[in-house]
Design a binder for these strands. Structure first.
Length: 505
RNA sequence: UCCAGAGUAGCUCAAUGGUAGAGCAGCCGGCUGUUAACCGGCGGGUUACAGGUUCGAGUCCUGUCUCUGGAGCCA
């Protein structure tokens, strides 16, 4: 047991830093290798707790030496029987690979082997020894086997590949598949990298409301939050909050308030859109990252967006190697090449007007003719990023009429300081802007967009008192993950997707 | 919401309008330090649902449902 604990020193450090992250202010991240200072008492407490834990398979597979008295727990992926000996492939979710457990007929608990079928959970004690057969460096020679939870033949996951459509119908079990294990490990890693990126740049993580009364420039249909029973005669004033409230579609307006005090902030939380849009890129509940920074102009905003995407790509390349290999093999042969490309090459930046000129001069027969004053269609975005430039493209300075009221008006009076980052395969992954900080212009923008200034009174206060130029953007976390993993359906990068007609789990 | 495609065994898929099949999974047996193990055997179906055409429909027609892809909207 001692041997295995020594092997785990790295893990233990991470546990400790997790326990103490609030005091050091450093966001804990396995990849960062940074440790927080912590008291000896805490270290002892964590150690005591950890002594009783099993060893993660990821640590064992990375072991440099043989170990005795190892304890693992996980789920059986498959069992192969030979004469007087059985091989169990055990996965505990810590990594893509399984640990081969060798159980001979004399091992304690060997009589349980017939019930150790695919899907069953087991607890195994044994010795980590070099494997005599090719296929794996280490294997666990079991001294004791315990069956925790059997899984009968109705267990739906088989050893062979399943379609993504089928796996979606068993969203509660699909994390046990190779693919979804890899996806959700990567999701965790990227979430961690998001915090690292912003914390390293002095952005504070702020928590904006989930329940909101402002419908944020109509960024989409909203889910209403109510305690009313739908009885006749009920008025909005009778509702819980004394008014109509909704689930947030964006934390941006509130983030602006915090940015205009703390300087640099970001949100990272759930977001809800009640749009009846049924596509591979839309979910009714998703996670969004929204940095907002005082004294940033559009240029700085674009710099930040580009640095952000590059950092996320680099992080996945550097810390998700095994899972990325899996994506490259079974999901998207180009994914690693694309991430490398994103890290190494500068993004193309073109004004909207230039984008329209390129599209019009392309000679391509688009279904929708590219026309100034209209939104870029999916096919236009695809052409720019996948064919013309073959790189991420930032399109900026859009016509005023197709962008929201809060975007800063350019001196031409026609365009606003907006930017969209387009990436191959997904299209728009980031949308942002420099915000209108001039009170009079903002009021005029509200009127232009036929909105009532009195509905935005607190937001206008930010311009009445100590206004500053500021900018920000929004990133759909799941779309980011799609880009980073090569997965092509948003429902396959979020554990329990919510889409129109679906809230099953 | 619109357009297109699909729905057959637990899973992945076959089947000119003419007796619904295979591989895998499962179960039984055999073999083996195995590696998506292998070999033999067995069970497994309201062909999404409801109508219609036909001597006869998994196949053709109509409607409904579901899923997938694309579009719109967007992140």
């Amino acid at each position: 047991m001692l041997g295995s604990m020594l092997q785990l020193a790295g893990d233990e450090d991470r546990r400790i830093s997790l326990q103490t992250q609030t005091s050091c202010g450093v966001w804990p991240c396995e990849a960062s290798g940074r440790k927080a200072a912590c008291s000896g008492t805490e270290q002892k407490r964590v150690s005591d707790w950890y002594d009783n834990m099993d060893t993660r398979i990821r640590s064992l597979l990375a072991s440099e030496t043989a170990q005795t008295g190892v304890h693992i727990q996980g789920w059986v992926r498959t069992r192969r029987d030979a004469k007087g000996i059985s091989f169990l492939e055990i996965n505990d979710g810590s990594c893509l690979r399984n640990l081969q457990v060798v159980v001979d007929a004399h091992a304690s608990g060997a009589e349980l082997l017939p019930r150790c079928t695919t899907g069953a959970s087991v607890s195994v004690w044994g010795d980590l020894v070099p494997s005599p057969a090719p296929g794996q460096r280490w294997e666990l020679r079991a001294t004791q086997l315990a069956l925790i939870g059997p899984a009968d033949s109705s267990y739906p996951l088989q050893k062979k590949g399943h379609s993504l459509e089928f796996l979606r119908t068993i969203a509660h079990l699909r994390p046990r598949s190779n693919l979804f294990g890899a996806v959700f490990r990567t999701r965790n890693r990227v979430a961690c990298a998001v915090h690292e990126f912003f914390q390293a740049r002095d952005f504070l993580w702020v928590h904006t409301p989930i329940i909101t009364a402002s419908d944020c420039e109509g960024a989409g249909e909203m889910f209403q939050v109510t305690t009313l029973k739908g009885l006749p005669g009920e008025r909005p004033e009778d509702d819980f909050f004394g008014r109509r409230t909704y689930l947030t579609v964006s934390g941006q307006l509130e983030a602006e308030a915090l940015a205009c005090a703390l300087g640099r902030v970001y949100t990272f939380g759930p977001t809800f859109r009640a749009e009846n849009s049924n596509t591979a890129r839309h979910a009714a509940e998703f996670w969004m990252i929204e940095p907002e920074a005082a004294f940033f102009d559009l240029q700085a905003d674009m710099d930040l967006a580009e640095a952000f995407l590059k950092a996320m790509a680099r992080h996945v390349l550097e810390t998700c190697g095994e899972d990325l290999d899996f994506f490259e093999r079974f999901v998207d042969k180009q994914v690693r090449a694309r991430l490398t490309f994103v890290v190494e090459r500068p993004f193309v930046r073109i004004p909207y007007a230039e984008a329209i000129r390129i599209l019009q001069a392309s000679g391509r027969a688009f279904e929708f003719k590219p026309e100034s004053g209209h939104n870029l269609q999916s096919e236009h975005e695809r052409f720019l990023t996948e064919e013309h430039f073959r790189a991420p493209v930032i399109v900026h300075d859009y016509p005023r009429g197709i962008k929201p009221f809060y975007m800063r008006l350019n001196d031409d009076g026609e365009t606003v300081r907006a930017m969209d980052v387009l990436v191959p395969g997904i299209g728009e992954v980031i949308g942002g802007a420099q915000r209108e900080e001039r009170l009079e212009v903002l009021m005029e923008n509200l009127r232009y967009h036929k909105l009532k200034p009195e509905d935005y009174d607190w937001y206008l206060d930010l311009r009445r008192y100590g206004t500053v130029p500021h900018a920000g953007f929004g990133v759909g976390f799941e779309r980011l993950l799609m880009f980073l993993t090569g997965m092509t359906n948003i429902r396959d990068v979020i554990p329990f997707p919510r889409t129109p007609g679906h809230a099953e789990f």
